[in-house]
Structure formats: C-alpha cells, structure tokens
C-alpha cells in the first residue's frame, strides 16, 4: 500500500507525440492545449525552426516545428498534424508534431539516460528515455526547445549595435 503510494508520487504523466516514427514524451504539466494545425505568420530574423506566430485567443505565440528543430526533413502538414501549446517559465509556445498519441505514467526511477547515439535527435533536448510496454519513449526537455543560444547572443548584440549610431 505504502509502496504503491510512493510510486504514484514519483510518477509523472507525459503526453506522447509522434515525430518521424519515434515517440516523444512531453511533461503533461507543461502542456496547455492541443490544436489542429493552422497556418502561422512568419517572423523575420527567426531561426529556421521557428515557423512564425499564431493568435492564441489574443496572445501572440511563437510556433516551432519539432522536426526542423531536430534537423529532420519537414513533411507536408496532414490532418493529424497538431500544434501542442506548452508553457515554460510563464511563456507559451507552440510545438508542431506529426500527431499526439497517448498519455502515459512514467516512474522517475524508470527514466534512463539517453545514450549518445541511436536516435536522429540531438540529445541536448532530451531528459531521458523510458519504456512503456514494448515502446520506447524519449522524454523531451521542453525548457530548452525555445532557448537557442544564437537568439540570446543576437539579442545581447543588438543594443550594442544600436549604440553605434553614425553621425553623417
């Protein structure tokens, strides 16, 4: 009884999504909503994986394509293509995936470190991997998806550039 309770405490629910025939898990507490794919408005000077922004009931929310983020080829958007809106540190953004599939309970103890090879994905964005029955689920570290170093560097550089106002 006590053990079961403990297990329930340690287990976290993950929303699993499909991407290029692999299954990824997103911490369900970070998921705000799931929407069908809708076209977005492109924004300038964005990294290639940021498709643009969409209107989420009056808020402007950036959308990134998880395939492009992981350096995979983008396929056509189909009826099952969805945008998962996640909230990280008070900011919302959309993640485009091939499909959503399931909600699974994952015991913290059952999370294994990601080996350095064997997946098509840069391991930097993964928290670990786990097994659900026969399936392998890669757990995404959503906090890191929209924090590319390049964007931060660009932002840091901008005010400096603005200072270099020339006098004709």
């Amino acid at each position: 009884m006590n053990d079961a309770a403990n297990q329930a405490m340690d287990a976290t629910q993950y929303l699993t999504v499909n991407l290029a025939n692999e299954e990824y898990g997103v911490d369900i507490l970070a998921v705000r909503e799931i929407r069908g794919w809708t076209p977005v408005t492109r924004i300038p000077q964005a990294p290639s994986y940021v498709l643009g922004v969409l209107n989420l009931r009056g808020a402007i929310v950036p959308v990134l394509d998880l395939r492009l983020r992981f350096g995979l080829v983008r396929e056509e958007y189909t009826a099952t293509t969805v945008t998962v809106i996640v909230t990280v540190a008070g900011k919302n953004f959309g993640v485009v995936v091939d499909a959503v599939s399931d909600v699974v309970d994952v015991d913290a103890a059952a999370i294994r470190p990601v080996p350095d090879m064997g997946t098509a994905v840069d391991t930097e964005y993964l928290k670990g991997l786990t097994s659900v029955g026969e399936r392998m689920v890669l757990l995404l570290d959503v906090d890191r998806l929209l924090q590319p170093q390049d964007a931060q560097m660009l932002e840091a550089a901008l005010p400096a550039l603005a200072d270099v106002k020339a006098v004709a």
């Binding site: 076209p39 977005v40 408005t41 924004i43 300038p44 000077q45 964005a46 643009g52 922004v53 969409l54 209107n55 009056g58 808020a59 402007i60 929310v61 950036p62 900011k91 919302n92 953004f93 929209l146 964007a151 932002e155 901008l158």
Partner: peptide, 25 residues
C-alpha cells in the same frame, strides 16, 4: 500585442496585431 511576451524582440518589428480573420500581422 507584444511579441516579447512569449517570444523576444525582433528588430524592425514593434509588435503584432490580430487581423479580422484571426491571423497575426
């Protein structure tokens, strides 16, 4: 609407708005 609320500043863009069809400009 602010772009920075969920994203970041984009140079040359001061913000965004929502058009009649619900899309973002």
């Amino acid at each position: 609407k602010s772009l920075e609320a969920n994203y970041r500043r984009v140079s040359g863009i001061s913000g965004a708005t929502i058009l009649a069809d619900g899309s973002v400009a």
